[in-house]
């Protein structure tokens, strides 16, 4: 059923989800028994990047009320019998628009929701797809990570994006857990899930569609948006070659332009991580304390990235504490 193996821009198809919701329109979402009023000021656009693979590109911003938490890339893969959704988005509003956009493309059942990792921009919309009947899938470490962080996420994001946008958001752990590799059969099309060792987080999962050589990398790949470190810098660097060995033609990164050439898309973040590690190793060797070292580490990479000031010191803090043990 899948014809075009290569990425073909001429056959792109665009489906808008938010577009069908005017200002003040009511989006019928049943979440914990409440109807949610979705006021979507901007459009949610799904683009078909190759046959049966549709992608939403998030904004390179922090989650906030105005962007509906829609800051990461989301996608779907459509088989003969069913649909797999990759990440659910950063709010019920976004996830509702995503579901509406999917329904504008296909009536096939949404059999799976794959969570690529624990972060709120990727999982806050889970309830919408659970209610749509999808089985939730994640890394074997994802339930543990959500147990330790879920309460904090619900509280800190209420402050950050506001109670209105947090409405209906639930922390929902996957029931189908991946420890290594697993295939999902969508009917005439099998996609490959792969659990990784700690890198961006300790629960990173990728999705590969061999038919179109499309890799959904989750946040193991960042473009333009500074990578964020919430797992292991050494683990991330150490698995970069294994990632590059995936026989993909293109990648949908967790953040940034999608699709992008593979494995070239790994190069910018590799460069950043190496600069960060180099600067911090020198600081540690010199006895420079953490609080002082994180202010200047990787500053040579500042102009290469968006959101550098928002995330670099945090990355440096986590990386310093890890590299101290080398």
């Amino acid at each position: 059923m899948v014809r075009g193996m290569a990425f073909d821009t001429s056959r792109r198809q665009v489906v808008k989800g938010f577009a069908c919701l005017g200002i003040g329109a009511t989006l019928p979402l049943c979440c914990g028994g409440t109807w949610i009023q979705a006021v979507a000021a901007e459009s949610f656009t799904l683009t078909e990047i190759v046959d049966g693979v549709h992608v939403f590109t998030g904004a390179n911003e922090l989650m906030n009320e105005a962007n509906h938490g829609a800051i990461c890339n989301l996608g779907i893969v459509i088989g003969d019998d069913a649909v797999a959704v990759i990440d659910s988005g950063g709010s019920i509003v976004e996830a509702g628009a995503f579901l509406a956009a999917i329904r504008g493309i296909t009536d096939k059942p949404i059999r799976y929701l794959v969570n690529t990792h624990m972060h709120p921009d990727h999982i806050f919309g889970n309830a919408v797809f659970r209610d749509a009947g999808a089985t939730l899938i994640g890394h074997r470490n994802l339930p543990r990570a959500l147990a330790a962080r879920g309460e904090f996420y619900l509280r800190s994001y209420r402050n950050q994006i506001g109670a209105t946008l947090m409405k209906g958001v639930e922390i929902i752990a996957p029931t189908m857990l991946i420890t290594d590799r697993q295939e999902l059969d969508l009917g005439g099309r099998k996609i490959e899930l792969r659990a990784w060792k700690p890198a961006h987080t300790d629960n990173d999962l990728t999705v590969f569609d061999p038919a179109t050589q499309t890799l959904f990398a989750g946040d193991l790949v960042f473009l333009e948006h500074l990578p964020t470190l919430d797992g292991s810098l050494l683990g991330w660097l150490g698995q970069m070659d294994e990632l590059a060995a995936i026989k993909a033609a293109h990648v949908v990164p967790g953040h940034g332009t999608a699709p992008a050439s593979w494995p070239q898309a790994l190069q910018p973040q590799r460069h950043y991580f190496e600069a960060l590690a180099r600067d911090l190793r020198k600081a540690i060797e010199d006895g420079t304390p953490l609080a002082e070292a994180v202010g200047t580490a990787a500053s040579s990479a500042r102009s290469d990235w968006q959101l550098f000031d928002e995330y670099n010191e945090r990355n440096a803090t986590a990386a310093y504490a890890e590299l101290e043990w080398e």
Partner: peptide, 26 residues
Amino acid sequence: ASGGCSAPAVKNQDEANRTMGQMKLR
């Protein structure tokens, strides 16, 4: 507070359990 997705939780739980008790003095 740092806000956002930076939670006060262990980043690499398996590694933390595996290496528990090692010490280093500089």
